[in-house]
Simulated scan of single mutants.
Amino acid sequence: MAYDINLANRVRERLSELPNIEEKAMMGGLTFMYNDKMCVGIIKAELMCRIDPAFHEAAVEKPGCRTMDFTNRPMIGYVLIEQGALKTRAEFDYWIDLSLQFNSEAKSSKKKK
């Protein structure tokens, strides 16, 4: 499954000055890890954001945002944003900033040995 390279480049540029950013192929797309924790990603043509689960319901009420749902299992705290809702720099930065803010509180996945 391919992901939108232009959207990936926008994310790369936005995160370029942060330390501890790592890109990983994941979930058929591209994921950006920050401090060894999933932060944002690209799935097909949508931006995936890991956000505070307490804010999830309010987030999915915003235009172009929906709950990430793989195999009919909604993932609270993970949202997908359509590119139509990311047209301006302010719209794009809003979602990236939301993910970066939650990253300090997010739990890191256990590393496989």
Results as ranks from 00 to 15, higher is better:
residue 12 R to E: 12
residue 12 R to C: 11
residue 13 E to V: 06
residue 14 R to A: 04
residue 14 R to D: 02
residue 14 R to S: 08
residue 14 R to Y: 08
residue 15 L to N: 06
residue 15 L to D: 02
residue 16 S to P: 12
residue 16 S to G: 07
residue 17 E to M: 08
residue 17 E to R: 03
residue 18 L to F: 03
residue 19 P to N: 06
residue 20 N to F: 05
residue 21 I to W: 00
residue 21 I to R: 04
residue 21 I to N: 01
residue 22 E to H: 13
residue 22 E to Q: 11
residue 23 E to F: 11
residue 24 K to L: 09
residue 25 A to V: 14
residue 25 A to T: 12
residue 26 M to T: 03
residue 26 M to L: 14
residue 26 M to N: 05
residue 27 M to W: 13
residue 27 M to G: 08
residue 27 M to T: 11
residue 28 G to P: 02
residue 28 G to Q: 07
residue 28 G to R: 09
residue 29 G to Y: 03
residue 29 G to C: 13
residue 30 L to F: 03
residue 30 L to H: 02
residue 31 T to H: 11
residue 31 T to K: 12
residue 31 T to C: 14
residue 31 T to V: 10
residue 31 T to D: 11
residue 32 F to S: 00
residue 32 F to W: 00
residue 32 F to P: 00
residue 34 Y to D: 01
residue 35 N to H: 13
residue 35 N to G: 09
residue 35 N to Y: 11
residue 36 D to K: 13
residue 36 D to T: 07
residue 36 D to G: 05
residue 37 K to T: 06
residue 37 K to D: 00
residue 37 K to L: 09
residue 38 M to Y: 00
residue 38 M to N: 05
residue 39 C to Y: 00
residue 39 C to N: 01
residue 39 C to E: 00
residue 40 V to C: 06
residue 40 V to I: 13
residue 40 V to F: 03
residue 40 V to G: 02
residue 41 G to E: 01
residue 43 I to N: 05
residue 43 I to M: 09
residue 45 A to P: 04
residue 45 A to M: 15
residue 46 E to V: 10
residue 46 E to M: 15
residue 46 E to H: 14
residue 46 E to N: 14
residue 47 L to P: 04
residue 47 L to W: 02
residue 47 L to E: 04
residue 48 M to L: 14
residue 48 M to D: 01
residue 49 C to G: 03
residue 50 R to M: 05
residue 50 R to K: 15
residue 51 I to L: 12
residue 51 I to N: 01
residue 51 I to C: 07
residue 51 I to H: 02
residue 52 D to R: 05
residue 53 P to H: 03
residue 53 P to C: 03
residue 54 A to W: 03
residue 54 A to C: 10
residue 54 A to T: 06
residue 55 F to S: 07
residue 55 F to Y: 10
residue 56 H to C: 14
residue 56 H to Q: 14
residue 56 H to T: 11
residue 59 A to V: 04
residue 59 A to E: 02
residue 59 A to F: 12
residue 60 V to A: 06
residue 60 V to T: 13
residue 61 E to I: 10
residue 61 E to Y: 09
residue 61 E to N: 13
residue 62 K to Y: 12
residue 62 K to S: 06
residue 62 K to Q: 12
residue 62 K to G: 05
residue 63 P to Q: 11
residue 63 P to E: 13
residue 64 G to A: 09
residue 64 G to E: 03
residue 64 G to M: 04
residue 65 C to V: 09
residue 65 C to N: 08
residue 65 C to I: 05
residue 66 R to A: 11
residue 66 R to D: 04
residue 66 R to M: 10
residue 67 T to A: 15
residue 68 M to V: 03
residue 68 M to T: 10
residue 68 M to W: 12
residue 69 D to L: 14
residue 69 D to F: 11
residue 69 D to G: 11
residue 69 D to M: 14
residue 69 D to T: 15
